[in-house]
């Protein structure tokens, strides 16, 4: 039996994100951007998805013990998923507020940790979901309608 629907999975790419490695931080987002360009996706969507991917990647480099960034491209949408192995966000609602940050001074010296990351991912995406459990990790999903 064959099934046809416009939401058929086209491709999935998974990138491993290393905690604390600022030299390669952003490489996954850079590869995602290249991939979306190769697929001929609309420039505005590429831009929003790339910003979200970069913010999510930096979040994991800065705050987590490491995780993965995944991009799923179907006929109708791009789904960006970021999942890490902890430590988790204590108060997700607070983390979503612009300007709230738990980043250290050394992170701020690199130009990050202004508390704009999560709100910016939400702003860039068409659908946004985040859940976090202390001691377990954080799962973030951002969707972009094609």
């Amino acid at each position: 039996m064959t099934q046809e629907n416009s939401g058929d999975l086209v491709m999935t790419h998974v990138y491993k994100i290393e905690a604390g490695n600022f030299t390669i931080a952003g490489e996954a987002a850079s590869n995602i951007k290249k991939l979306l360009r190769q697929l001929g996706i609309d420039a505005n969507i590429i831009r929003r998805a790339s910003i979200a991917a970069y913010e999510a990647e930096m979040n994991m480099v800065i705050h987590s013990v490491g995780g993965h960034l995944e991009i799923e491209i179907t006929g109708g949408e791009i789904v960006l998923k970021a999942y890490d192995n902890g430590p988790g966000i204590e108060d997700v609602e607070l983390a979503m507020e612009e300007g709230y940050s738990t980043a250290t001074d050394s992170t701020r010296e690199l130009g990050f940790g202004a508390g704009m990351g999560l709100p910016n991912i939400k702003r860039c995406s068409d659908q946004f979901h985040i859940q976090s459990e202390m001691g377990q990790g954080t799962y973030l999903e951002a969707k972009f309608v094609l």
């Binding site: 952003g26 690199l110 130009g111 990050f112 202004a114 990351g117 910016n120 702003r123």
Partner: peptide
């Protein structure tokens, strides 16, 4: 602050900054 730049900048922009690490290029 690259965090702010990421939140507000549009395309075809010139970025002026005192930071010179790889994150500026990213």
């Amino acid at each position: 602050l690259m965090s702010d730049v990421l939140a507000f900048v549009k395309e075809q922009t010139v970025l002026l900054t005192g930071l010179n690490n790889p994150q500026v290029i990213r």
